[in-house]
Amino acid sequence: MNSTEIIAELQPIFADILDLPDLRLTAETTAPDVEGWDSLAHINLVGAIEKHYKLKFALGELQDLNNVGDMANLIIRKLGA
């Protein structure tokens, strides 16, 4: 899978957790861009993404992320690991 495909899969996960059905993610989307993407929502997003892809993130991996594109690339790396 490439980054665009991953972001398309993340779209409904983010929309559900953030309760924003019209949310449109791009690789450049960051937390301050999105209403309600606060620290607690972020924890819930990480949990939902872990369950969707059946993988576990380390805190250090998450702290290096700057935007949704970085998250997508991290997922690709972990799925390939």
Binding site: I43, N44, V46, G47, K51, K56, F57, A58, L59, L62
Partner: peptide, 11 residues
């Protein structure tokens, strides 16, 4: 039912 280890959250 789930452990979010990175942020120490349980479900």
């Amino acid at each position: 039912s789930y452990l979010n280890e990175a942020y120490r959250q349980i479900e």
